[in-house]
Simulated assay, not measured.
Amino acid sequence: MSQFGQSGRRPDGAAFIIAAALAAIGTVILWDAGRLPDNGGYSGVGAGDVPRLIGYALLGLALWTGIDGMRGADPRPKQQPVPLLWLLGGLSVMVASIHWIGFALGATILFTCAAAAFGERRFHIAIPSGLVLGLVIYAVFDQILKLNLPAGPIETLIFGG
């Protein structure tokens, strides 16, 4: 039997490493979820159900990645660091400043940087869009779900702190 897969390409070693990492993380999550008390209450859904779902999903992704690795490596696209830097920069600024500027402005920064990472350079559109989405998300969590997100000057002005 040949060392090449059905496509005539060699198996992808990186895919096997990724599959092993996904399987390890999924296994740890399943093990940890098994230790949680399963008090489903009236709905039958307990604290361990979502971690179990995530663990099984990661194991499924590991299997899928391993099968794809057996088929052989496809040519990978050239990596572009600039979009990644936009995303990491926006996330870093949001995490570092969210307690001072509030959720809406932090989400605006992250949204604008994510839009720039995907090639959007019309910041006069991205910034107001991010602000509106940030305020809507804040309103849902704060007013409807009664869950606290960091409030800044805009949230205090609109929703009364």
Rank of each mutant, 00 (worst) to 15 (best):
F141R: 05
L30V: 06
L84F: 15
L131S: 03
I154V: 15
G72H: 10
L131M: 08
A114C: 06
G46V: 11
V140I: 15
T108C: 03
Y138T: 00
I125V: 02
G119C: 02
G102T: 02
A107I: 00
L131D: 00
T108S: 02
G161F: 11
D32L: 08
G90P: 01
T112P: 01
G89A: 13
G90D: 06
Q79I: 11
D74V: 12
L133R: 06
I17S: 14
L133S: 07
G48C: 10
Q3S: 13
L36K: 10
F118L: 13
G46D: 12
G26F: 03
Q79L: 15
I29M: 07
Q80P: 00
V28R: 07
G130F: 00
L84N: 14
L85V: 10
L110P: 00
G72T: 13
A33S: 13
L105H: 10
L91F: 14
T65G: 01
D74R: 14
I54N: 05
P51T: 01
L149N: 05
W64G: 07
Y138A: 04
V132Q: 13
W100Y: 13
A23R: 04
A14L: 15
G13C: 14
A114P: 02
D68H: 12
E155Q: 07
G134Y: 05
F111T: 08
S97K: 12
P128Y: 11
L59F: 11
M70P: 03
V28A: 06
G89N: 14
A23C: 08
P77Q: 10
I67H: 13
